Amino acid sequence: MIVIATLVAAAGRTDRLRTALEAMIEPSLAEPGCLGYQLYADPNRPEQMALIEEWTDEEALRLHFGTDHFKQVSEVLGEVLAVPLQLRRLTERIA
């Protein structure tokens, strides 16, 4: 399963958002069921970022949402996002 989280930092909060999301990479990759966890920024609009995650299944993702590092970043997101994050789950691979 692929998860795409799209995030937009509020004015003056881009660095804080980037730091919080970068801190998620290593502990997330260490979780059982995490196959990939990458952060990208839009080169033309650095306040816009996307996390591209790959999980073995829905249960692994559910457990991820309960980790301490996820809870910590969730608190930061409430302070730094311009708009609520968008989360897409892609479960069907084509070709």
Rank of each mutant, 00 (worst) to 15 (best):
I94Y: 08
C34G: 02
A10K: 02
A10G: 11
A82E: 13
A20W: 00
S74K: 08
V83C: 08
E47F: 02
R18Y: 04
A50D: 04
E92Q: 15
R62V: 12
D15Y: 07
A60S: 15
Q48M: 12
Q48L: 14
L29D: 04
T67S: 08
F70H: 05
P84Y: 08
E26H: 09
K71D: 07
L21T: 00
D15A: 15
D57M: 07
T6Q: 10
R93S: 15
E26Q: 13
H69T: 04
A11K: 10
K71L: 14
E22H: 08
I52M: 12
D42H: 07
Q38D: 14
V73S: 02
E59F: 14
I4A: 09
L35H: 11
L7N: 00
M49N: 01
A11I: 06
K71Q: 14
A20K: 00
A95T: 15
R13G: 01
P43Y: 10
I52W: 10
E47L: 03
V83A: 09
P46R: 11
V73R: 00
D15H: 06
Q38S: 12
E31G: 04
V73K: 00
L7P: 00
W55R: 03
E58I: 08
E54A: 13
N44H: 11
Y40K: 06
L90C: 14
S28V: 01
G36R: 11
R93V: 15
Y40P: 03
Q72H: 10
R45N: 12
H64Y: 07
E79I: 01
D57R: 06
V83G: 04
E92K: 15
M1C: 05
I25R: 01
V80D: 00
A41S: 13
L87P: 03
R16V: 10
Y37N: 01
G33K: 02
V80K: 00
Q38G: 07
T91A: 13
R16T: 13
Q86I: 11
Q38L: 09
C34H: 03
T6V: 08
R89H: 13
P27Q: 10
M24W: 01
A11T: 12
R13N: 06
D57T: 06
E31C: 04
G33D: 04
A50L: 13
L35C: 11
M1Q: 04
V83L: 12
E59K: 13
K71A: 13
P46W: 06
F65W: 10
V8P: 00
A41H: 04
A10V: 02
G33M: 05
E79M: 03
E31A: 05
T56S: 14
V83D: 11
H64C: 04
L87T: 09
V8G: 03
L85A: 09
G66Q: 15
L85S: 06
T91P: 03
C34A: 15
T67A: 03
A50K: 07
L90N: 07
L90M: 13
L61M: 13
L87K: 09
L85N: 05
L7Q: 00
G78T: 01
G36L: 10
R18K: 10
G36E: 10
H64S: 03
R89W: 08
G78P: 02
N44Y: 13
L35E: 15
R45F: 08
T6H: 06
R93N: 12
E58G: 04
I25C: 04
A5R: 01
A9N: 02
